[in-house]
């Protein structure tokens, strides 16, 4: 009985590790030189900081990514915001409108 409980818990943990979500990040401003957007998979419950780390690795644009923020269609998301489902996001570099 005890063994069964452990196995179930382990299975849930393995499921969590294996569970991936698809993320699309749209480019604006200085990121446009890399295309319109980027798509990749990350583990479920990844944070916005994790998303930025992936983009930073893929683009080799550390300074630009670190000075940028990630948003959805409604608001800017903080670095500790957790993604549980597939998401379409935007990466917003420093702004200069007007």
């Amino acid at each position: 009985m005890h063994l069964t409980k452990l196995q179930n818990r382990d299975l849930v943990a393995v499921d969590k590790i294996n569970s991936k979500i698809n993320v699309k990040v749209k480019y604006y401003g200085a990121f446009r030189k890399f295309g319109d957007d980027i798509e990749f998979s990350v583990p479920k419950e990844s944070s916005i900081a994790d998303i930025k780390a992936v983009i930073q690795d893929k683009l080799n644009a550390k300074s630009l990514v670190q000075s940028s923020v990630i948003s959805n269609e409604d608001s800017i998301l903080q670095d500790d915001y957790i993604l549980n489902d597939d998401a379409t996001l935007s990466i917003l570099p420093p702004v200069c409108g007007g």
Binding site: Y28, R32, K33, S68, V69, V95
Partner: peptide, 27 residues
């Protein structure tokens, strides 16, 4: 607007050169 609105400028120069201007981080 200059500090907070997500807007970006790309300047265009002679010979097809262009540059996205630096700005204010929304962080």
């Amino acid at each position: 607007i200059k500090k907070r609105s997500p807007i970006w400028k790309q300047e265009h120069y002679k010979y097809g050169r262009s540059s996205w201007l630096p700005g204010h981080s929304l962080r």
